[in-house]
Amino acid sequence: MKTKTILSLCAIAAIALACATNPFTGKKTIAIIPNSQILPMAFQQYDQFLAENKVVKGTTDANRINNIGQKIAAASERYLTANGYAGYLKDYAWEYNLVEDDAVNAWCMPGGKIVFYTGIMPIAQSDGGVAAIMGHEVAHALANHGQQRMSAGQIQQLGAAAGNIALANDSENQEMFNQYYGVGTQLGLMLPFSRNHESEADKIGLTLMAMAGYEPLAAADLWRRMKANSGGGAPPEFMSTHPSSDTRINNITAWANEARAKARKYGVTSFKK
């Protein structure tokens, strides 16, 4: 058996065996790199980031982020436990920080390490806006999107290596392969993969914010403000890592009733904007 065939079979076997389950969708996801490796690295990077940036403490916004983050985390725990995933969060170490930066952004590292930049707070505006952002970022962590992105990146690299091995004696076609493989996999695989994660995090986040007592449609209002803030400067959706603001607004509007219905199953009957 040729070396390239052996490598291909080993790669396929490794990918097939390296799977996890999304606790919200029940779908299998790629998990080539285990969380036992990812979480310690993420925690270390988070601590380093905080040490190198100005963390805002004790202000109304800083306290708001911490309080809402705790409510979203509690909703996550409740949902997971009720749906057969007790102990799912045992290795998480929730932390919510506001960082002085004009960027309109927030993010969550694997394991529940969350940062809001001060630049996003005027657009968040209300508790509901903060809860929408928080729910979305927490959803990324709970669905292991970071793990999946790292795993997909490895698969992309593996495909490039396999192509080069297969074309080792054909320099002309090897050059053409390398020229088109990166663009093709980026537009056809990696970007759609990322957009799907963003939409999935939006949907999961709606459930979490509703369970924490916040109105899901506040997320649609948030994206209207985000759209206005962008001034229409976003790239075409097919070239972006994120769905367009209009796509997100339409999806959130369609999903809001379902999110409220799920929250009511847990005794939540009022939703704050």
Rank of each mutant, 00 (worst) to 15 (best):
L167M: 09
V115Q: 09
C19K: 15
Y180W: 14
A166T: 08
Q125S: 08
I38L: 14
D127G: 11
A218D: 08
A86F: 08
P216K: 15
L7A: 13
A18S: 15
S230D: 06
A75D: 04
G84W: 00
N53P: 11
S244H: 02
G163P: 02
M109E: 10
E200C: 06
K57F: 11
F271T: 03
V138D: 01
A218P: 01
P235C: 09
R224V: 07
A139G: 04
I65P: 04
S240C: 06
A93H: 15
F193E: 02
M190N: 11
V55Y: 01
T21M: 11
E175R: 13
D47I: 07
E95Q: 14
Y96K: 07
N229D: 15
A82T: 13
F24I: 02
K227M: 10
M134I: 08
F24S: 03
T25F: 07
T207L: 14
L39M: 06
I252P: 13
I155M: 10
M1P: 11
N22G: 06
H140R: 08
T185N: 11
G163M: 06
D47W: 11
I72E: 09
R64C: 00
L98T: 04
I30D: 04
S194G: 02
K90V: 01
E258S: 14
A254M: 10
E258L: 02
L89F: 01
D47T: 07
T60P: 03
N250T: 09
E95A: 13
A152F: 01
G267D: 01
R195A: 08
S244M: 06
R64K: 13
A106M: 01
Q147L: 08
N144E: 08
A11K: 11
N105I: 02
M176D: 09
G188A: 06
Q48C: 05
N178F: 04
I68H: 07
A13Y: 07
Q70D: 12
T247R: 09
R149V: 11
M226H: 01
N144L: 15
K57M: 12
V183E: 09
E215W: 01
G232C: 03
M190D: 10
S244P: 03
I32H: 08
K262Y: 11
K262L: 09
A139R: 06
F24N: 00
A161C: 12
I155D: 04
L142I: 14
S245I: 04
N67P: 00
I252E: 12
T3M: 15
L98A: 04
P236H: 05
A141L: 05
K90R: 14
I204W: 10
P122M: 12
F238H: 11
H242Q: 05
M239R: 13
Q186C: 12
Q174D: 02
K265G: 10
A219T: 06
L208R: 02
K28P: 00
I123E: 04
S199M: 14
I32N: 08
A74Y: 01
T241E: 01
A106N: 07
T25H: 05
T241G: 03
E175Y: 14
F43R: 15
V99W: 07
T185W: 13
G184L: 11
